[in-house]
C-alpha cells in the first residue's frame, strides 16, 4: 500500500496536525514503510475469529449512579491557556 501525498495530507487534516511540505514527504515514505510491514498480517487466517474487545476476562462493574466528585470549576480551568469566569475560551466558532 503506497501512501501518497494526498493521503498524508488527508489524514493529517483528520488528525488536526499541520504538516509542512518537507514533513509530508518524509511521512509519505515512513507511513508507506510501516503500513507495508504490517501487511504481513494478511497471511494469518482469521476466518471465524472474534476480534478482541477486552484482554482480561472480566465483567465491567457498575457503580452507583451518584455524584461523587466535582464542584471546583476553578481547579478544572486552572491549566487552560485561556479562561474567563471558569469557562474555557476558544477562538470564535460561530459568526
Amino acid at each position: 500500500m503506497k501512501i501518497d501525498d494526498a493521503t498524508v495530507r488527508h489524514i493529517a487534516r483528520l488528525a488536526r496536525i499541520k504538516v509542512s511540505d518537507a514533513e509530508a514527504k518524509t511521512l509519505e515514505n515512513e507511513l508507506t514503510g510501516i503500513l507495508g510491514w504490517v501487511e504481513q498480517l494478511s497471511e494469518v487466517d482469521t476466518d471465524g475469529v472474534e476480534p478482541m474487545t477486552c484482554v482480561t476476562d472480566m465483567q465491567i462493574h457498575m457503580r452507583k449512579d451518584e455524584v461523587t466528585d466535582g464542584g471546583y470549576p476553578e481547579e478544572i480551568v486552572k491549566n487552560a491557556p485561556e479562561s474567563t469566569d471558569n469557562f474555557f475560551v476558544v477562538p470564535k466558532v460561530v459568526e
Binding site: 501512501i3 493521503t7 498524508v8 489524514i11 493529517a12 483528520l14 488528525a15 496536525i17 504538516v19 514533513e23 511521512l27 515512513e30 507511513l31 510501516i34 503500513l35 504490517v38 498480517l41 494478511s42 494469518v44 482469521t46 475469529v49 472474534e50 476480534p51 478482541m52 474487545t53 484482554v55
Partner: peptide, 30 residues
C-alpha cells in the same frame, strides 16, 4: 508521536477499519 497518531488515524479511517484494526484485533485473539 505524529507518526503514530497519523498511522492510527489512517487505520481507523473509513474504508480501512476492517482491513487493519479489526484484522489486528482478530490476530490479537489468536
Amino acid at each position: 508521536v505524529k507518526r503514530r497518531v497519523l498511522i492510527g488515524t489512517y487505520v481507523l479511517s473509513a474504508g480501512y477499519y476492517d482491513a487493519y484494526y479489526l484484522k489486528a484485533q482478530r490476530v490479537r485473539t489468536l
